[in-house]
Write a protein that binds this DNA or RNA. Structure first.
Length: 493
RNA sequence: GGGCCGUUAGCUCAGCUGGUAGAGCAGCUGACUCUUAAUCAGCGGGUCGGAGGUUCGAAUCCUCCACGGCUCACCA
């Protein structure tokens, strides 16, 4: 019970007074029949006279978010899960019950039974006939028109942010609708939603540093998954031809406006398809869900206009590098690429492969230009150990990344289903791992064994849901689209 | 991890080149039956993020620490 200040004391006093009146300050169930938005929308056009004639009864409940007392009458707004509505409390009508009004504070929950009317200024309002006290709030809410701005409190105490900042609530409602819409889309295309291990003995499917934990009974270290990929492909081997998983991945890396240690990813796998099919599929999926949830294809992001209407251009990784490096590079030449990267100020480690260097150049030179949706295709093989090689060039793989608003939104490829090649690629990754590249892939013998039974040609893709939500809700930081983003521990002081 | 910025009342913020803390909202008391940033009169509220230091004197200057933001690095 730290920091019991005067404001809290006042409220505790009212709480005791409620008890003396025989009222439970933390309330009993209340039969809610109407919501703020159903009333506001349902009677938006109705005239004051018609309202009086019809004498419409309603029952609502919510948190008091504004309060204006006049002695024998009081106006307040209550907020429920759908919105807010004004309540008019009169001594003339409530009689004895009106004494309760003096015990009310901003933030308290009340239930109201009453009749609709329209005030002089035209606001649809409930005139209370019965007031039921539901729950006392003993801490004062943030201020009513500046709201809550302190970002640290907004993230740590998201509940306050949600109460006070209605736009924040909208973002998370949109996020939920988007995820629902994605599921609906995939289900309609014959996909099966599955769940695969979050705790894995061999973390695979991405280039990333994992979190480690320990299982006591089994006495073994386990890793929080960095991707579900290898398990989903095992399911393709098992004959589940279209599967998806939409859930959390964990990566033990830096935190930034674009990275949270746990983040939400959609991965889906389609047997008998390749990366070209997936590009068509991705255009359809993203434009469909955007239209479904936001009713639009054009979005405002960071002051610029974004157009999601397909089709989106498809440019190879190499062409893109050439296009944005004003002819200063021959990407097929290892030494020249290296020299060029150095001139860009990129730190080149000795063990960097040609493909790695090219990708660094790409990030430096190309990525900052990719605002409108674009597919970058055909990546270097050595940075894509799980993707199938291009038939005409073994140094490239059938892989694309979708960029929107300078961000990588999706990553997909024709899955490597040749177990012999897969073993070679893993072996090379293991060498990198031993050389100190801590994010490199590990050998996964069971995965190779699965491929040896035969995996049909398959296209697979991952989509970063948080980043997609950021773009569609014009949110500059990933923390704005994750309810409880990771922060350092709150100091005890 | 580096750089820059921030942390003052429950909330939003002032507080100059050092002189001992201020506003609005919220709260309390009183008035008020159509207000919506209600209004009017009065009152209370602070370990100035934490610890050291300089100084006669520190919210203010210096050092360290904590937390946060932006950014760079790292990283899909």
């Amino acid at each position: 019970m730290e920091d019991i200040n005067e404001l809290i004391q006042q409220r505790l006093k009212k709480l005791d007074e409620l008890k003396l009146l025989g009222i439970d300050p933390f309330g009993r169930p209340f039969k809610v029949k109407d919501t703020a938005s159903s009333i506001m929308n349902g009677y938006a056009e109705i005239s004051p006279d018609e309202l009086t004639n019809k004498s419409i009864a309603c029952t609502v409940a919510g948190r008091i978010i504004s309060f204006r007392g006049f002695g024998k009458a009081t106006f307040c707004h209550i907020q429920d899960g759908t919105g807010k509505i004004q309540i008019y409390l009169r001594k003339e009508i409530l009689g004895e019950q009106y004494n309760l009004v003096k015990k009310l504070d901003m933030g308290d929950f009340i239930g109201i039974e009453g009749r609709l009317f329209r005030t002089k200024t035209g606001e649809l309002t409930i005139e209370a006939e019965k007031l039921t006290f539901l729950t006392k709030s003993i801490r004062p809410l943030p201020e009513k028109w500046h709201g809550l701005k302190d970002v640290e409190i907004r993230y740590r105490q998201r509940y306050l942010d949600l109460i006070v900042n209605t736009k924040v609530k909208d973002v998370f409602i949109k996020r939920a609708l988007l995820i629902k819409s994605i599921r609906r889309f995939l289900d309609s295309k014959g996909f099966l939603e599955v769940e695969t291990p979050m705790m894995q003995a061999i973390p695979g499917g991405a280039t990333a540093r994992p979190f480690v934990t320990h299982h006591n009974a089994l006495n073994m270290d386990l890793y929080l998954r960095i991707a579900p990929e290898l398990y989903l492909k095992r399911l393709i081997v098992g004959g589940l031809d279209r599967v998806y998983e939409l859930s959390r991945n964990f990566r033990n890396e830096g935190i930034s406006t674009r990275h949270n240690p746990e983040f939400t990813m959609l991965e889906f796998y389609m047997a008998y398809a390749d990366y070209n099919d997936l590009m068509d599929f991705t255009e359809e999926m993203i434009s469909t869900v955007a239209k479904d949830v936001f009713g639009a294809m054009k979005f405002e992001f960071e002051g610029k206009s974004l157009d999601l209407a397909p089709p989106w251009p498809r440019v190879t990784h190499m062409e893109a590098i050439k296009n944005y490096s004003s002819g200063n590079i021959d990407p097929t030449n290892f030494e020249k690429s290296r020299e060029y990267a150095k001139t860009l100020g990129i730190q080149i480690k000795d063990d960097f492969s040609h493909g790695k260097i090219l990708d660094e150049i790409f990030k430096e030179v190309v990525e900052p230009n990719l605002f409108q949706p674009i597919f970058i295709i055909n990546y270097p093989t050595d940075i894509s150990p799980l993707a199938k090689r291009c038939p005409d060039n073994p140094n490239l793989v059938e892989r694309f990344e979708l960029f929107i608003a300078f961000r990588e939104i999706a990553n997909a490829f024709s899955e490597l289903n040749d177990p012999i090649d897969q073993r070679t690629r893993f072996e090379r990754q293991v060498l990198e791992l031993q050389a100190g590249h801590i994010e490199a892939h590990r050998m996964d013998e069971d995965f190779i064994r699965a491929l040896e039974y035969g995996m049909p040609p398959t296209g697979g893709e991952g989509i970063g849901i948080d980043r997609l939500v950021m773009i569609l809700t014009n949110s500059p930081s990933i923390r704005d689209v994750i309810l409880f983003p990771q922060l350092k521990e709150e100091s005890k002081q």
